[in-house]
Design a protein around this nucleic acid. Structure first.
Lengths: 150, 150
DNA sequence: CAACCAGAGTCTCTTCAAGGAACTCAATCT
DNA sequence: AGATTGAGTTCCTTGAAGAGACTCTGGTTG
């Protein structure tokens, strides 16, 4: 789908999009996260074309986000999140929080999240890794980093 | 691009993807966030086709993520983030944090973020809105919510 | 006042990805 | 031996992305 090569841009957002920047990839990660780990399960759950699912899984494995793991002597495998992939789930949780606030409508959110540490139904919010205070769009100033374009 | 209608799925991730689920939209939001607010600026910065940029901007305005605002009596406008759009920037900050950790390579991150509250170079991390403890992929249990499919 | 210019699109055409459906292949169950 | 199942492949059609030229509107310049 991507004709443009986002991976080469000197932009961390573009680089992330090079890995999961078309709509199926986040949904595939979600499925693996919640326990749909096999090809047929994911295909049936999402209704994605088998061809596209094959491509996306290969891509995600290539990029080190998923790992293909045999669960039988037969040609049978399941897909599991690597550490790298697991940290992408943070992004999914932010998407969920946003959609639950702005798009859920009268029916309310389809899924709720219980936090193990406190046992409460909650959602994720962004905090500064340094001081712990909230960190949103207007709370930061952008400055060029070492990998900035020349 | 999307042949599949993600907006109708009972999944908050799919609903978010219906709004910004192809690769250009997050980059457009980033541009508006950092101050490229006019059509020509965004087009030149991203190298996106004018046709596609027009489509994406209209879509983002339709969904209430951006607002089209005249800055002259002539047909001249700029695009600004609404509150709804501003909260999507949270997602972009998580993408940035992930790419800076896993994809930046030797050169290091292209952009750094200084947090106004503490003045330090930092990045965003996810905390439970209820107890303030870290909240990642393995820290939550998913349970059906009121808007779950029947 | 005519000519020129800039911003913000629209139109057209080509190429490539998504969707859908049928087919393959290996190993196991009956 | 034949049917079944998981996990893909292959082929075809449709539609979105990309590139570039064209348009339209209201200033600005000579």
């Amino acid at each position: 789908m991507q004709r443009t090569n986002f991976g080469e841009m000197a932009c961390s957002i573009a680089r992330t999009l090079d890995v999961i920047g078309e709509p199926w990839s986040p949904l595939i990660l979600r499925d693996v996260w919640v326990g749909f780990t096999r090809f047929e399960q994911i295909q049936a759950d999402l209704g994605i074309s088998r061809k596209v699912l094959t491509e996306r899984l290969n891509h995600l494995v290539d990029r080190g986000v998923l790992e293909r793991r045999p669960y039988d002597r037969r040609p049978r495998h399941e897909y599991v999140l690597t550490d790298k992939g697991s940290e992408l789930v943070d992004m999914l949780m932010v998407m969920v929080g946003w959609a639950d606030k702005w798009l859920a409508g009268k029916a309310g959110p389809p899924v709720l999240y219980r936090h193990h540490a406190c046992g409460e139904i909650s959602h994720a919010e962004l905090r500064c890794a340094h001081c712990g205070e909230p960190m949103h769009a207007d709370d930061v100033e952008l400055i060029p980093g070492p990998g900035a374009a020349a």
